[in-house]
Amino acid sequence: MEQINIHKAKTQLSRLISEGKEVVIARYGQPVAKLVPIKHLSQDRKPGTGKGKIRMTDTFFDPLPDFASHTIIEK
């Protein structure tokens, strides 16, 4: 893993990002930060893949017992 100083990291940030390597950024020779690439998902998410895996009961939208006494009644 390469270690570079803050000034070099600021002036070459675009290049460092495009290389996609881990880089330790140091101030006065002491490591203060690490630049790491984001790991991408192995495959794109597809809509609808969770269909049928979640089930809600009929009482899902009923008020919780703590709030039952605070219901607003319109006149």
Rank of each mutant, 00 (worst) to 15 (best):
E19Q: 15
G48T: 03
A26H: 00
E2T: 11
D62H: 09
V36S: 13
H70C: 05
G50C: 04
I38Q: 10
S14L: 15
V32Y: 02
F60I: 12
I73D: 07
R27Q: 14
A68P: 00
Q12Y: 03
H7E: 15
F67A: 09
K10N: 13
G48Q: 07
E22I: 13
L35I: 07
N5R: 08
K39S: 12
L35K: 01
I25M: 03
S18G: 03
E19T: 12
R55Y: 08
A68L: 14
K10G: 10
T57I: 07
A68M: 13
M1Y: 08
G50K: 04
M56F: 15
K53T: 09
L16I: 11
A33T: 04
I25E: 00
K75S: 07
E19V: 08
Q12W: 01
K39W: 06
A68Y: 05
I17Q: 09
A33R: 06
T11Y: 03
L64K: 10
H40F: 04
E74N: 08
G29A: 09
F60K: 06
P37R: 06
L41V: 07
T57N: 12
T59W: 02
P63Q: 04
D44R: 09
I6K: 13
V32N: 02
H40I: 06
D66S: 13
Y28W: 05
L13H: 07
